[in-house]
Every structure is written in C-alpha cells, then in structure tokens.
Nucleic acid binder design. Structure first.
Length: 342
DNA sequence: AATCCGGGGGG
DNA sequence: CCCCCAGGATT
C-alpha cells in the first residue's frame, strides 16, 4: 500500500477538526494533547463527527484537563453526555480519568498496550491515541478503515471474518508518521472512499485498489446477513404534582440507558401490557412515542396525570424549566415532549 | 464469537 | 424505510 501517497494527500486535504493538530502544525513541532485526543476518540466511537463537535467543545470548556474531569461528579458528566448515546462510554470516561489521575499521576500512558488497560479504551482507541499522540507504529483500524481495506483487497467475506488479516496487512503499511497516516486513512474513508460513493479518480490508493480495478467498489465491504429488529411495547407515566413539577427517577446502574434519568414506565414487552398507573389520578393518554434502539424498536404509550406525591419517594420532583439540565436520554425527552413538556 | 448498548444524518 | 457511523464490555 502506497503510504507516502496517502500522507501526501493528507498534507493537502486533511479535515480541520477541533481535536486535531494539522499536519503543518505537527511538522512545526506541535504535538496533540492526549487528553483531548482521548476525549474525542471516546466520543467518536460509533458516532459521527458532526454529532460529536458540540459535545467536545462543551466538555473541554467545562473540564480543560483530565484532572478537571476526574474531579467532576459523575452525575455532571452524565448530564453533559445526555443525547450522545452509548452511556456506558460516559461512565467509563469518568472512571478512566480517575484512573489516569490515581494510577498515572495525571499523565496518559504513551503506548497502546498501556492505554488499553484503561476503562473504555479498547483495541481501536488505544491504537488511535498511541499513533496520533506518540507516533507509535501501530495499525489503527476503525469502521472507515474496514471499508477502505475491504475495497482495496476486494475482500469477499464480511469484515468481521477477516479482521486479523486486515490488521496484519495494514500494519505492514504503517509509516513513521503513523498518527497522520491513521488520520489520513480515516479522512479518506470519510470523504473519498465513503459508504455510498467512491471517488476513485482522486483517491491516492487508486493504483493498487482491487475493487477499483474490478470497476464496482461499492460492492465492498460484503455485508453479513442482518438480524430482524423486534418490537417492544409499553407505557410511560408522566406525573406532575400540584405545583406542576415532574416526577423523575434514576434508571438501574446496569443495562439499557444505565444510570440515566427517566420517568416511570411499565415493562417493555412484545405485547402491550395493561397500564398500571403508579399513583391515583385522572390519567390522560397523549399519544405514542417510537424510538429505535440498536437491537429493538420501542413503542411507548405516553400518559400523564396530576397526582399526590405521597409514596413517590424513590425519585424527585423537577420543575419543567430544569428538564433541559437533567440526564435525560433522547427517548425520555420524546416522552416529555409528547406529554406537552419542553 | 455473539450480543448488548443510542442516536442522528443521509440516501 | 434503510444504512452506517474514529467500538467496548460482557457473556
């Protein structure tokens, strides 16, 4: 693989991103801040650049260093993460910051192996940080690279079945500027060798690419057979007290939307359960909210009532004006909106 | 090796 | 509607 061509392309076409040090600045001796690179990489796990930008700017404004983030309450981190999804990332992010401060003097390890021992840092993220910050010559393999390499080698099986082979082939191509090479390949996948379009005529890997030679690069990567997405149904109960405050509670620490804020709901089942209202009141049906999770579709009937607060002591009452600052996942923001709040 | 875990943007 | 995104932890 023509790594020099990839780097030359990157020197001219690198995306300008808030967490990135440009190739020109790198040549001038400016090195990336591992804290900012780590934060961005965790946010970018299964998440698009466009969705991450505002969260990254907010986090780095609130917590400019890993020590600041480690000292922050977990609740505050979850509130700021709300809406970004995959909430285990936020808990691992905080745990990782604490570990860096407690076990490493506030300095991130400078090798992929050392980084991967930290919470929320796996094979991809450890390699990305080690390459981008320390130019460790390690293969950085993400979803973009899966697609670029599957096309380059005209891989006839789903990527999952050939991950080790792809990593080995990529490792042989990693140049001295391994950090810029990793970011170059990801930019290539995001802009030139995209999922539904391949601009082969301007691609630095044009000459060696087998899919381009075959003439149908979009045939790759070969997709695995998709599983069906089941439907689950349930009820959501929006309770307000005489002052108009809304009853909220914290979800269990494990499982779906762990430790995030919610309004009470029924169980979620294939067949819509009978509603069991958590308190007496004049319950009114507002409508249905549909939310798509990775592995199922959820349909919630939204109910509301004014109730007496007695017996509702597991959660708390929140004024409507404070809902924006709660750790509410998008699902429950939809529920509250359906009930006429926010 | 499979499964669980969000949400949004684009075709 | 569909797909896919700078994946990791758990089982």
């Amino acid at each position: 693989m023509d790594s020099p061509a990839v780097l030359a392309w990157y020197d001219r076409h690198a995306r300008d991103l808030p967490w990135r040090v440009s190739p020109g600045d790198r040549r001038a001796g400016i090195n990336p801040d591992p804290y900012r690179v780590w934060l961005s990489e965790v946010m970018l796990q299964q998440t698009t650049v466009a969705a991450v930008k505002s969260y990254f700017l907010r986090f780095t404004s609130l917590w400019p260093t890993v020590r600041d983030l480690a000292a922050a309450p977990l609740d505050a981190v979850l509130r700021e993460w709300a809406g970004l999804g995959y909430y285990a990332r936020a808990r691992n992010l905080h745990a990782c910051a604490e570990a860096v401060v407690r076990d490493h003097g506030g300095v991130f390890p400078d090798t992929a192996a050392g980084l991967q021992s930290l919470p929320g840092i796996g094979a991809y993220t450890s390699a990305a940080i080690a390459a981008i910050c320390f130019d460790e010559r390690v293969a950085v393999l993400d979803g973009n690279l899966d697609r670029v390499l599957a096309r380059y080698y005209a891989l006839e099986v789903p990527v999952r079945e050939a991950k080790d082979e792809l990593r080995g082939a990529l490792q042989l191509a990693v140049p001295e500027r391994s950090g810029d090479f990793a970011q170059a390949m990801m930019d290539l996948g995001a802009t030139i060798c995209a999922p539904r379009a391949a601009m082969c005529l301007v691609c630095p890997l044009h000459d060696g690419c087998e899919a381009r030679a075959e003439g149908d690069p979009l045939r790759y990567p070969v997709k695995p057979v998709k599983a069906e997405r089941p439907v689950r149904r349930g009820h959501a109960y929006v309770m307000r007290d005489a002052a108009g405050d809304v009853y909220l509670q914290t979800r269990p620490a494990k499982g779906l939307l762990a430790s995030m804020t919610e309004v009470p709901t029924s169980d979620w089942a294939a067949d819509l359960p009978e509603p069991h209202y958590p308190a007496e009141g004049n319950w009114r049906w507002h409508g249905q909210v549909v939310h798509i999770f990775t592995h199922f579709r959820l349909e919630l009937d939204v109910w509301s009532a004014v109730v007496a607060p007695e017996g509702l002591d597991a959660g708390w009452w929140a004024a409507p004006g404070t809902l924006a600052g709660e750790a509410l996942p998008t699902l429950f923001r939809k529920v509250l909106a359906e009930a006429g709040l926010s």
